[in-house]
Computed example of a mutant assay.
Amino acid sequence: MGSQEVSTVDWQGKHVTVAGLGVSGIPAARALHERGALVTVVNDGDDERARAQAAELEALGITVRLGDGATLPPSTELIVTAPGWQPDKPLFLAAAEAGVPVWGDVELAWRLRGDNGKKAAPWLAVTGTNGKTTTVRMLASILEAAGLRTAAVGNIGVSLLDAVLGDTEYDVLAVELSSYQLHWAPSLRAHSAAVLNLAPDHLDWHGSMQAYAADKGRVYEGNTVACVYNVADPATEDLVREADVEEGCRAIGFTLGAPGPSQLGVVDGILVDHAELGG
């Protein structure tokens, strides 16, 4: 199972603003600081927990601004945001006006994979309105049964930053991705990906069903082997058709009925493969 080329960034002296403390912000701030970036963390909240987290980061030499997540710090060259921060926040509007790129924790993990000398494992990415967690856990179990070193990561289980920067060298990662995470992951290019289904969700965050679907569809961009879609949900196949993928990448449909060409389906209770996708 091959992996895409690893992108490298010279972090030394780079002014990076991390938006949000918590499960993604703190590991991101630490990882960037360790690589020589000049990190400023901004956070809307200023409660006791936030102050304790800030103290730990400040002890490392990281600047933290509590109660002010709206103002773009001077000299910022990049923002790394927690996935839940909405795109219309003043911080991001100011960044767009200043030409400052915004990444999420998934984008940062994608850029840092292989940074510590380990093999950069390919990602099998799964998104959809419903069923992501169950599917990713099943995928990880299948990969383990095949003898591959893997983990269920992303919006489930181990964080992606921990997975790509930890000591374990994985053969492949089973990655659950939310629409929030995909919105902030412009250069993610999975080995293969699936959109399980699409239904109206988080429309206050995305602004419209069209924008929500477009962010889900980002998971297919640059896929190298397979784009998996739901035959019963034509909107997922539409996203495959719109995606810019690598030459030779296959569209594979799944259905609970009898499969057509390039599909997996069920006949008399037996899983039937008409996709015949080679390794």
Rank of each mutant, 00 (worst) to 15 (best):
G2N: 08
Q4S: 13
E5I: 10
E5R: 06
S7A: 14
T8L: 15
W11Y: 14
K14D: 00
G20F: 15
L21F: 05
G22F: 09
G22L: 13
A28S: 08
A29H: 07
R30Q: 11
H33M: 05
E34Q: 12
G36D: 06
A37P: 03
L38E: 01
T40P: 07
V42A: 09
N43M: 12
D44R: 15
G45C: 08
D47A: 11
Q53S: 06
Q53F: 05
A54R: 10
A55T: 02
L57H: 02
E58N: 00
A59V: 06
L60I: 01
G61R: 00
G61N: 00
A70R: 12
L72G: 01
P74Y: 11
T76W: 08
L78K: 07
V80T: 05
A82V: 10
A82Q: 09
P83V: 15
W85K: 11
D88E: 00
L91R: 00
F92Q: 00
A94Q: 06
A94P: 01
A95N: 03
A95I: 00
A96W: 02
A96G: 05
E97T: 07
V102Q: 05
V102K: 08
W103K: 02
G104R: 11
D105V: 05
E107S: 00
L108F: 10
A109W: 10
W110F: 14
G114K: 12
G114Y: 06
D115H: 15
G117V: 02
W123Y: 12
L124E: 03
G128T: 10
G128Y: 05
T129L: 15
N130D: 04
T134Y: 06
V136Q: 04
R137Q: 05
M138F: 08
S141E: 12
I142C: 10
L143Q: 14
L143C: 10
L143Y: 07
A145Y: 01
A146H: 02
L148A: 11
V158G: 04
L160Y: 02
L161N: 02
D162T: 12
D162E: 14
A163M: 03
A163K: 12
L165T: 09
E169R: 13
E169V: 12
E169S: 14
A174F: 06
A174Y: 01
A174K: 11
L177P: 02
S178D: 04
Y180Q: 03
L182A: 14
P186V: 00
P186F: 00
H191N: 11
A194Y: 04
A194H: 07
V195W: 01
V195S: 01
L196M: 14
N197M: 12
P200G: 14
P200D: 15
D201V: 14
H202N: 11
L203G: 06
W205P: 03
S208A: 13
Q210A: 15
Y212R: 14
A214Q: 09
D215G: 09
G217W: 04
Y220R: 09
G222A: 10
N223T: 12
A226R: 11
C227K: 09
V228L: 12
Y229T: 03
V231R: 09
V231H: 02
T236W: 03
D238Y: 00
E242Q: 09
A243D: 04
A243C: 07
D244T: 11
F254P: 03
F254A: 13
G257Q: 09
G260N: 07
P261E: 15
P261T: 11
V272G: 07
A275K: 11
E276V: 00
E276F: 05
L277I: 07
G279Y: 00
G279T: 08
